[in-house]
Design a protein around this nucleic acid. Structure first.
Lengths: 228, 228
DNA sequence: CCGGGAATGTAAGGAACCCGACAGTTATAC
DNA sequence: GTATAACTGTCGGGTTCCTTACATTCCCGG
């Protein structure tokens, strides 16, 4: 089998995306196996990758761009999360054989790898290493979600906002979310988020702009997130 | 290899414990493989199965009894959940090679199956079906936790209590938890839980006793849980 | 360059909930 | 069988946060 440089790059990227690279690294054969279980797809901003209730025939590995996950009807949608490159979505529904539990919509231009259920399962049945890696990835996600439960339970909106900013900031310390989106992500009201951001701005720990928050003092922000 | 009736029973129980039995059922060889990766252990009430921060060398599958999961120091512990037969605990830490994230304590007499990491991983590496089943189990747990996040975000204490009662009730409709425990499970105060239970009692949907809540009208209780 | 839609800023009133305190009740251990 | 710890029931003050409402600012397409 001959492979172009682009393929190589893609396969290497696949290897990095699943969990810690030092833990049971995928062999080159494993990578090939995985790449044959689906295709790369591209989505325009605002389009759906899958919708709540659809039969779950595939899972998706985000390569580029960001994706919003939400539940409920369009007029009163409830954002469940926003994920970026490296995230796997739709796998819960696909593996458990149930309809998708949430809808996913591309925020910007999105490139993803689609794993087709019928092609993936036979491959996994003969590739324990990949299955194990996928298991570890899902358990890591589970742990993250459990931590989120603990945060939601006892922390004030101020601490929650600080925590979200630290987690979601890119390498330039910027978070490109509207205050309304931050509010739904935290399950708070837009006004409370606005008030919290004002407090952080007053303390000189962040700057705010249109659809944008810039982290100025990550260290202090982490302290605020740990309070309460 | 000769197997006693007790072994057979145990292996069959293992098969039922992991997710939906109609989905990729384990073969008898898989069951044997799994049973060789650890031993059955028994724990007295109040004793620890593992403690937060310990090196995670094993995961546990609960066979009988209930287990409390909690985090933080003993004097101000924070209950993360209570699990019964069929639940797998400690697997997150074990697979990701990190110390246990929470402590687990036997509520009553507990029988569990201990999977030793060093014996389990080689078995899984050659048994994709088991790994896949484990993956499905963890994803199901992830979905449950995500649902809990949604509940915590927008629902009132009354609705949360109603939901917990419906989920935790045994076949006689009884929930043997103290109001304080219910409160920590929901991240609410004991007083608020007490107030909610009074309201449900006033409506004739539950009865309360010492360390006990009895569900009288599950149907209406589900409606209350869905409100808000 | 300007109009409309989207996002941000601000304020007041009220609901839900937490905290501290204490009295009454039930289980459990000695 | 009694002491003690654990649990339930209840009250009032205080806080956080939501809701409603409206003014202002910003972006983008024509």
């Amino acid at each position: 089998m001959e492979e172009t440089p682009a393929d190589q790059q893609h396969l290497a990227w696949l290897a990095r995306s699943f969990g810690r690279p030092d833990y049971l690294p995928l062999s080159p054969e494993d990578l090939s196996t995985l790449s044959e279980a689906g295709e790369i797809i591209k989505k325009y901003p605002g389009t759906h990758i899958f919708k709540e209730g659809d039969s779950a025939t595939a899972a998706f590995l985000i390569r580029e761009g960001e994706v919003d996950l939400y539940r409920g009807p369009t007029d009163q949608r409830e954002v469940v999360g926003r994920v970026g490159p490296g995230a796997v979505i739709g796998d819960i529904a696909m593996f458990s054989g149930q309809p998708y539990i949430s809808s996913s919509r591309a925020v910007g231009h999105v490139t993803a790898f689609r794993f087709d259920r019928d092609r993936l399962l036979p491959k996994l049945a003969v590739s324990p290493a990949i299955t194990l890696r996928w298991l570890v990835a899902s358990l890591t996600q589970l742990e993250r979600t459990q931590r989120r439960v603990l945060n939601l339970m006892h922390k004030t909106v101020l601490a929650q906002v600080a925590g979200l900013l630290v987690n979601e900031a890119d390498d330039r310390g910027e978070v490109a979310l509207s205050q309304a989106t931050i509010a739904t992500l935290l399950g708070a009201s837009r006004q409370s988020v606005n008030e919290a951001l004002n407090e952080l701005k007053r303390r000189g720990q962040v700057e705010t702009g249109y659809r944008l928050v810039r982290v100025l003092d990550e260290k202090k922000l982490r302290l605020v997130a740990a309070e309460d």
